[in-house]
Design a protein around this nucleic acid. Structure first.
Lengths: 220, 220
DNA sequence: CCTAAGAAGATACTGCCACTATCCAGTACT
DNA sequence: AGTACTGGATAGTGGCAGTATCTTCTTAGG
């Protein structure tokens, strides 16, 4: 199909399709002449995936490129899962050094909290992991706000996070040996967060409503 | 204190403090003359909160303003929690109408899924809630990707989301009658998502590592 | 008192991002 | 031959989050 039909099929403007091509999110079509190329179903599917990752997953174009690169280089299930896991952006990143409060004590205290949590959960994650660093940064900021995020509190959340991660991996790995493995895995790993957030917000709204109207039929 | 000291104390550039003032994230200082104002500890604390909401919570300036407005108008605990819950941005928003695929069937199918899930969970949430609409949009997109997000699958996640929401509300409401109620509540409600996401990613990394090295000491 | 160093507020500018539009050869159909 | 369309390159747009400049005013030090 030509680019105009690809655009019609997916709802993505032609100019945007060209943009995604430039940014290497979308492979080129099969060229049939100097100014003509043929696109296929794989392009339709890829555009849908791009849309899902950016609009639902909230990924930037750059992050989407990295994730899709991991999908395209799929070798084994494990390697694919690992590549995707590392390609996904970390929600919280440490600020560049030299930040106003050069509080080394707070930094190491937060680091100790995270290390303790990981030990308590028996997680295999090195302290060099961007996720480790992100959590450390977050805890440092929360300490500054006098927020109640002590390790004891965190463990309850960590247990739930662990359950979620198990559900995710179970689903992501279930596509083992299927041709669509990498693609389905990326959907699960990249969109699980936003989906969970939506469910959490829904549950939160329910809790708030029950507090506001405790005399309802289901107030128990 | 003067603005330069406020800047030094918080690490926020003077120009940014002025910007937050303009955007109504930060109250004005107590004016002592036409071109002089006095700032206090509440400004320091507010700036820390702004930083946490934007950098950790990922909120935009506009969303932060809404959330802070809810904090400032705190009346009762319940009203505060409700106001904050509604002020927080919904991660997934329905695209403007007229989108390429005018698939009314997919839309209502997704809507039925969400309604079914909410009924199964016994949640008190109207179908007009932005969270309901967001989840519907997300499911519609996922259906298009042939992702395995059937209601049965979702329930497991919903149960976990429910547990998380209960932990959150328990903590948010624990500050009842404390002067810092609204502020601590907003921290819990707005930053719980990013914190959980970080923990989930950490747990995910652990799972991926265990798959990659199943002969480790804790591979069970 | 005079002056230099801020301070406050208004306005303008910047950099990044995700598109979006224009331009240019080069087909393809009629 | 004429028109519509194509792929690719390049340039422009709009929103966001600051950042910088400018003007007027205040105040502490000499």
């Amino acid at each position: 199909m030509k680019i105009s039909e690809l655009s019609r099929r997916t709802g993505v403007p032609v100019a945007s399709i060209k943009y995604f091509r430039r940014e290497d999110l979308l492979p080129a079509g099969r060229a049939t002449a100097a100014t003509l190329a043929e696109y296929g179903e794989e392009h339709v599917q890829r555009l849908r995936l791009i849309k899902a990752l950016t609009t639902l997953g909230g990924l930037s174009i750059a992050a989407t490129r990295d994730v899709l690169a991991a999908v395209d280089q799929a070798e084994s299930t494990d390697k694919t899962l690992e590549a995707i896991s590392y390609a996904l952006p970390v929600p919280v990143t440490a600020a560049s050094a030299g930040d106003a409060d050069r509080d080394a004590a707070a930094e190491s205290a937060a680091e100790a909290d995270v290390a303790g949590l990981i030990a308590a959960m028996d997680w295999q994650v090195p302290s060099t992991s961007p996720h480790f660093r992100g959590l450390t940064t977050a805890l440092r900021e929360l300490r500054r706000l006098d927020a109640d995020y002590r390790p004891e509190r965190l463990v309850a959340y960590a247990e739930l996070a662990h359950s979620i991660a198990r559900l995710d991996l179970e689903r992501a790995a279930a596509f083992d040996d299927s041709p669509a493995l990498a693609e389905q895995a990326v959907i699960v790993l990249a969109l699980s967060g936003p989906m969970l957030e939506l469910l959490r917000r829904l549950a939160q709204e329910d809790q708030v409503r029950r507090r506001a109207a405790p005399d309802g039929p289901d107030a128990g």
